[in-house]
Design a protein around this nucleic acid. Structure first.
Lengths: 231, 231
DNA sequence: AGTAAATGATAGTATTACTATTATATTCGC
DNA sequence: GCGAATATAATAGTAATACTATCATTTACT
């Protein structure tokens, strides 16, 4: 996996940037450092001015790459989902048994990212934290739908594809299950939520150092889909 | 239900306001109109200045009730959860059968709010929309934990109590189910999420005009908890 | 009527989220 | 290695935001 990773690139919707940050070292530094900075300060207190100072560059230079900080966040989210989709597809590709396949997919999607695969200049561990802490569909969508009525789906293509794939895997295990999309989106979003609770509100979850969201969701899925199969 | 409601009052943590908005007509107008305005403009574009203009009052007067708009949002969220808890407890109180009780609780928690019970000056339908669109734990918590390290839980007492109650109902149905808290928090948050998707990203959910989140979650819960009981 | 409390009006500050302009590096074709 | 393009940096400026402070006015209370 690690070796292959070097040559894979996550494609991001062009509308999310003005100039491709992958095309220069400044662009890479912007992406790289913004992740750390947003985690550190929280998204609201993150500004291009502060980022410029940190990377010894200039506010105005950053504006040449990203229209505003919301777009940068969307870019990071798109990258994250693209990366998750890649990992999910890669990890499940060779598995033919539907149950095993779904189990593996859920494992990849719900586990905590614990090592930086050195896929790129992006530190996936920190990005994972960023998404857990800052990813709020509502926030992102508000911005998007205002500027981009009717086209908003473009920005979420990857996330939609991921949910659709997971939904198909669910159907492959239980073709009669009536809510595969809702279950898939509940897993994807719910996983972020359980990680969040584990960190900030431990009394609202059973997840802790020993039990992780993967255990919870794996159990949930197979209890739900095994109905009638194991009876 | 309707008559009783008149005399019930949702208690809100005092730290969320400077002066109790329930104590004056200006305070009530602030709360009442802010709900509409946040739904209309989105939280980020909502300001006390604009609110002041709309209610023919003054920015500075609003600041005497709420420290800032984040606190106002926390106040509204606390009210919402208090109201949901009340409705849940009220609706399930007389039910002795554990399964029926849980089913009713889920119904109350996941259904769309469709009528304004005239409980107070607060329009619950619009508030429900606000929470669906703007409620992001991450956002709220960031604010809270910064200013209030160690005390952050205070703000979420009601929401925590709600999840704890639901968790207990789950355990009452299946005392061996290992993740009652996670399941409860997944329902509460997941319900908002499904409503959100239904409105903004219909391809990510099976919920629509005919199927609603209540159907999905009721089905999910009983598939999950009936393991071994119905076998 | 007199006092306190609530509200309103106005002004002011620091920060943010940009845009515009001009200057300085850096890269690239040749 | 030179000149032209391109990228980046520096600086300045604007409108809006998120407040704070002060003082004036209205309302409520006894």
């Amino acid at each position: 996996m690690d070796i292959l990773m070097q040559s894979v690139r996550i494609e991001i919707n062009e509308k999310l940037y003005l100039k491709d940050p992958e095309s220069s070292s400044l662009g890479k530094k912007i992406v790289e450092e913004s992740i750390h900075m947003i985690v550190e300060l929280g998204f609201e207190h993150f500004t291009f001015k502060k980022l410029g100072a940190k990377i010894n560059s200039n506010e105005s230079s950053i504006y040449r790459y990203f229209e505003n900080k919301q777009k940068l966040l969307l870019y990071l989210a798109a990258w994250y989902w693209g990366w998750m989709e890649y990992r999910m597809v890669f990890a499940t590709h060779s598995i033919s048994d539907a149950k095993e396949k779904l189990e593996k997919a859920i494992e990849v999607l719900t586990q905590n990212v614990e090592e930086d695969n050195a896929f790129s200049h992006i530190n996936e561990i920190v990005l994972n934290h960023l998404i857990i802490n800052e990813y709020s569909n509502s926030y992102l969508v508000k911005e998007v739908s205002k500027e981009n009525k009717g086209k908003k789906d473009d920005y979420f293509t990857i996330c939609k594809r991921l949910v659709a794939r997971l939904s198909e895997m669910i159907t492959a295990v239980d073709k009669d299950y009536p809510y595969p999309l809702s279950l898939a989106s509940t897993i994807v979003e719910g996983s972020l939520h359980q990680h969040f609770l584990k960190e900030h509100f431990p009394t609202l979850t059973n997840c802790n150092n020993k039990i992780n969201p993967t255990d919870f969701f794996t159990d949930l899925i197979f209890r739900t889909l095994n109905q009638g199969l194991n009876g």
